[in-house]
């Protein structure tokens, strides 16, 4: 008899790594490491000008791109990854939404000549054509992630906290 249930339960033993996991994918070296803490903000507005004014800073215009730590995820949605300690703007009564989601996600850095190979094991995007400056929500297999191309061969991955152990190990599994 093949026991099915314990297979899934085995996943509960997983924990997100706290130190870099290094190795190679397809012979190309790559490291997976926890990203430094960030302040995360979900920023919403129909009018980019209103949001830009409220924040006092420029926002990326094209969906799927990032500018100075803020990515435009959708027509009325931006996501900020700001240095730890950055204040959460207090705005109210305006046609916009700022929500502190700092604790919602954790970040990983995937870096090295094998970074694309490590990520396309589960991400269906053509990452060889996902240049630095791009950022988007997408998936790694069944799990939603945000993927930010930070530099050639360096990606930042955001994932909701409870999916992080599975994602860490799923990426690490291919780095040998």
């Amino acid at each position: 008899m093949i026991e099915i249930a314990p297979l899934a339960i085995g996943a509960t033993d997983l924990a997100t790594g706290t130190a870099p996991h290094t190795g190679a994918v397809n012979g190309l070296s790559v490291s997976l490491s926890p990203a430094e803490p960030r302040v995360r903000l979900s920023l919403r507005a129909k009018d980019v000008g209103v949001l830009s004014a409220a924040l006092g800073r420029a926002l990326p215009e094209r969906i799927g791109t990032q500018l100075d730590g803020i990515a435009r995820l959708g027509p009325d949605e931006w996501h900020a990854l700001l240095p730890e300690g950055s204040p959460v703007p207090a705005v109210s009564g305006q046609p916009l939404s700022v929500v502190d989601v700092t604790a919602r996600s954790v970040g990983f850095t995937v870096e090295g000549p094998g970074a694309v190979a490590a990520l396309i094991r589960g991400c269906p995007l053509d990452l060889a054509n996902f240049a630095p400056g791009r950022a988007t929500r997408t998936v790694f297999e069944t799990v939603e992630i945000q993927l930010w191309a930070m530099a050639p061969d360096r990606f930042h991955v955001e994932v909701w906290r409870s999916f992080a152990p599975w994602l860490w190990h799923s990426i690490a599994d291919g780095i040998v």
């Binding site: 297979l7 899934a8 339960i9 996943a11 509960t12 069944t142 409870s162 999916f163 799923s170």
Partner: peptide
């Protein structure tokens, strides 16, 4: 790679480790 522990994500809260240490019995 969807096999064994990586078969599917099992979401855990931040209290899960504490509950495990207390000998909790879990359900999905």
């Amino acid at each position: 790679h969807h096999k064994d522990a990586l078969f599917q994500p099992v979401r855990k809260s931040v209290i899960d480790d504490w509950a495990t240490a207390q000998g909790a019995v879990f359900e999905n």
